[in-house]
């Protein structure tokens, strides 16, 4: 039984039909990656799963429970947490306040403390800057903060939208290492990435989204070998 099961969903922005009959499943403990061109609907899919958008048709199940009847803030409590595209930290609040905000739905002070320690071991840089206003952090630090903030909510399934966007290669490597480490620690991950090469290296499964539909899904290994993926997303001839 997969942890997350998305079945034939259709999502609209007003009249614009963006997701057309998308299905996807994530097993517990996996890293699943979603690749696709700009505007393919990747962010839309993540926003639909986390409850910020509501699909017109189709079903989403998490631990065999129907998710669609829940609101976004209730879904967070169920264990699905999103790291939004473009980081979107609370720019006027300090690093610490951002992290506290991440733990909003969590009622257990002990758990919050362990989560905070975990975040600070993963990202020592955040600890050093815990009193800095988040808007003044560098892009890389903001990405760390966005990830840390999501971890404070104690996720079982982490939805990450392009965590490597706009980062220098060294930082990209370290972000991907962190993702792998989170995964070995037991967090299941659904990862949207433009950097298909790296994503497919750490993922177990992959989905290719094209204008709102899934055109390919396979193990990451097979996708790396796939002719179409190599041409379109890995930039090989």
């Amino acid at each position: 039984m997969p942890m997350l099961e998305v079945e034939n969903i259709h999502t609209y922005y007003g009249q614009i039909h963006v997701l057309k009959e998308v299905s996807l499943s994530v097993e517990k403990g996996e890293i699943v990656t979603l690749i696709g061109a700009n505007g393919a609907g990747k962010s839309t899919l993540l926003r639909t799963i986390s409850g910020l958008l509501r699909p017109r048709l189709g079903s989403i199940r998490f631990d065999s429970e129907d998710l669609i009847r829940y609101l976004a803030h209730e879904i967070v409590v169920k264990g699905i947490v999103q790291v939004p595209e473009g980081r979107r930290v609370f720019g006027q609040l300090t690093v610490m306040e951002n992290l506290e905000m991440g733990a909003f739905g969590c009622k257990d002070p002990k758990l919050i403390r362990t989560n905070l320690e975990r975040v600070f071991t993963l990202f020592p840089r955040l600890k050093a800057r815990s009193k800095q206003v988040a808007g003044t952090l560098s892009g890389g630090e903001q990405q760390m903060l966005a990830m840390g903030r999501a971890l404070m909510a104690n996720p079982r399934l982490l939805l990450m939208d392009e965590p490597s966007m706009g980062l220098a290669p060294v930082l990209v490597d370290s972000i991907f290492e962190t993702i792998q480490r989170l995964n070995t620690d037991g967090t299941t991950i659904l990862l949207v990435e433009q950097n298909a090469r790296m994503a497919l290296q750490i993922a177990n499964h992959g989905y290719v989204l094209q204008s709102g539909s899934v055109v390919l899904s396979d193990t990451a290994e097979n996708l790396r070998a796939n002719e179409m993926v190599r041409k379109a997303y890995l930039g090989e001839m």
Binding site: L71, V81, F90, G91, Q92, E97, F104, C106, R149
Partner: peptide
Amino acid sequence: RAWMAVREDEDVAQAMGINL
């Protein structure tokens, strides 16, 4: 705190578990 988050970014506030 919830108000503060809503003021800063409604979407993210919601995604942090705040009942908008």
